[in-house]
């Protein structure tokens, strides 16, 4: 089975205080550490496991800039055979459909049985997989947390509300968006990344992909992020201040009065 996995380079933000830049058009990115979107690691791991069992190969692809190459190498160190970097000034400012259209052009140049994305990335739209499938006229299933390979089709579980699993049969070729927890992504160390450091990663731009520059990028985007702002905060939590001892004493009083300590 030939599998293409779409991966995105994203900032790791949970533990950082996010600051908005002075123009208000982006966050301060200088101090942020970038890595692969969490969901995409699960997709790559699943693809590798499928290929180990059923043969074929895994290709990872990203739309980004030169720095995005590092995430391709990371996923290749996990076991993806090849990488594809789609980059062009004309791609900048693409909305979700722009990104999906660029990925579609790359799919058209290959011969893939299965395309995987993460369920969502840092901007939280959860859009690229479903758009790509519709553009390709392939069937789509989102939030997949179980895959069984059949003859010309897959049995897939979608994780729905309450953690229940919706089981579907889907024909190949298809697009699946992968939910976290489907597997345990393998660890990659520096050594693994070094091993793939010299593997050639082809870079493709708009003309290589046969894309009309006007069909992607900022000009074609019908969804535009205007600015970032800090929302007007409501009251928010009462922050307990003082020494740890004082804080804990206050907290215990509160917990007692609310029935939190039996």
């Amino acid at each position: 089975m030939e599998i293409l996995v779409c991966v995105k380079r994203v900032p790791d933000t949970a533990e950082n205080e996010i600051e908005i830049n002075s123009e208000g058009n982006d966050i301060e990115r200088d101090d942020l550490v970038y890595s692969v979107n969490e969901w995409d690691n699960y997709a790559v791991e699943e693809a590798i496991q499928m290929v180990d069992k059923h043969g074929g190969s895994v290709t990872v692809v990203t739309v980004g800039d030169e720095e995005s190459e590092e995430v391709l190498r990371r996923e290749m160190a996990m076991g993806a055979e090849s990488g594809l970097l789609l980059t062009d000034d004309a791609f900048e400012g693409s909305d979700g459909k722009g990104i999906a259209a660029i990925l579609k052009a790359a799919v058209d140049k290959g011969n893939y049985d299965l395309i995987m994305t993460g369920a969502q990335a840092d901007e939280g739209y959860a859009q690229v997989g479903g758009m790509l499938a519709a553009m390709l006229d392939y069937p789509y299933a989102s939030l997949v947390n179980m895959i069984e390979v059949g003859d010309g089709k897959l049995k897939v579980g979608r994780e729905i509300e309450g953690g229940n699993m919706e089981v579907n049969e889907i024909e190949l070729p298809c697009v699946l968006s992968i939910q976290t927890g489907i597997n345990e992504p393998r660890y990659v160390g520096i050594r693994g990344i070094r091993k793939v450091a010299s593997v050639d990663i082809p870079t493709l731009g708009a003309s290589d992909l046969g894309l009309d520059a006007g069909s992607v990028g900022e000009g074609a985007a019908r969804v535009k992020r205007i600015d970032y702002f800090v929302p007007e905060m409501g009251e928010g939590a009462e922050m307990l201040e003082g020494s740890t001892e004082e804080i804990i004493d206050k907290l215990i009083e509160l917990l007692k009065s609310k029935g939190g300590i039996k």
Partner: peptide, 24 residues
Amino acid sequence: PHDTFGMDLGPGLSVKLDSAFAAD
């Protein structure tokens, strides 16, 4: 709704309707 159904339907529907898509 931006739930497991809306995530499944919305993006592809917007492609087929050739309309804009925003989520969450």
